[in-house]
Design a protein around this nucleic acid. Structure first.
Length: 270
DNA sequence: AAATTCTCCTGAAGGC
DNA sequence: TGCCTTCAGGAGAATT
């Protein structure tokens, strides 16, 4: 399930294969993703050359000669570089064909999206209201503290609110809260500035470690070369409900927040 | 207006 | 073995 580190990993994996490459052909086998893929996508973008691939939040932005593609991998999306004529398999929904290879979009659950736009992607409704990037200086203790003071939500909800800070999904929210000893249900208002500082540091540290490990592979994630990430081995609470806390050996507990399972240590996080 | 719940979808895993 | 149920979850839409 791609979160920010996984998207960053994929971006770095595929970019060298795609930069300055011209799209020869686009094959759409399944249009029904989160939103239907533009019916005339092939006619519109064939012949355009990829200028750059950037990331904003969990979105990949592909800059073409004239237009842009905004790609989101949803829960189970994969982008892989495959040799030309590689037989397609179940859930291989889209192929972008280049002179010597093919970029293939695969997504069993189809929560992802491939959106075409000819405007500045920053102004696109999907991107225009997003909060700060977690790995920039804009995400700092002052910023988090200010928003926490204004919020009525539990801190985990705030941390996962993309209008505040992007890219922190369920896995990394749980890990960051554990690392900073903060209970996921803790009222945002109650957080001290120091705790905000610790949480910001923990989130950055967790995300950077995950990027360095090539992402977290649970069921679905593989990078642009089809290889899994290794960060799941470093997870301390996510998916470890009922097991011993790595720090104090207490039994980890689970609660549901925003319909997301949330594992935490009742002893360390309070 | 902000916060929560619903919804999309499929595959894996567990129960019988 | 195989069918059924349950769970996982990003993020926009709907609802409270």
């Amino acid at each position: 399930m791609p979160e920010l580190p996984e998207v960053e990993t994929i971006k770095c994996g595929i970019t060298p294969h795609l930069i300055k490459q011209t799209i020869q052909h686009v094959i759409v086998r399944q249009r029904q993703l989160r939103w239907p893929i533009a019916a005339d996508l092939h006619r519109t973008i064939a012949g355009q050359t990829i200028q750059a691939i950037t990331r904003r939040s969990k979105y990949l932005i592909v800059k073409l000669s004239k237009d842009y593609l905004i790609i989101h991998l949803g829960m189970s999306g994969r982008l892989q570089i495959v040799p030309t004529h590689t037989p397609y398999q179940k859930h291989d929904h889209v192929d972008f064909k280049f002179a010597n290879h093919c970029l293939r979009y695969h997504d069993p659950r189809r929560f992802g999206a491939i959106v075409w736009t000819d405007h500045d992607p920053k102004q696109h409704p999907l991107l225009s209201t997003l909060g700060v990037e977690p790995l920039t200086d804009a995400f700092n203790a002052d910023y988090l503290y200010t928003h926490a003071q204004r919020s009525k939500s539990p801190i985990k909800n705030l941390l996962m609110n993309a209008k505040i800070v992007v890219g922190i999904g369920n896995i990394y929210a749980a890990e960051s809260l554990f690392l900073s000893n903060i209970h996921p249900l803790c009222s945002s208002k109650q957080l001290s500035h120091t705790q905000c500082q610790q949480l910001v540091s923990a989130a950055k540290q967790t995300l950077l470690a995950a990027i360095a490990a090539g992402g977290t592979t649970l069921k679905d994630f593989y990078n642009g070369e089809g290889k899994p990430g290794y960060f799941q081995q470093a997870l301390q609470v996510y998916g470890r409900d009922g097991q011993a806390c790595v720090r104090c050996k207490s039994r980890l507990e689970k609660l549901i927040l925003q319909q997301r399972s949330t594992v935490y240590c009742p002893s360390c996080q309070n």
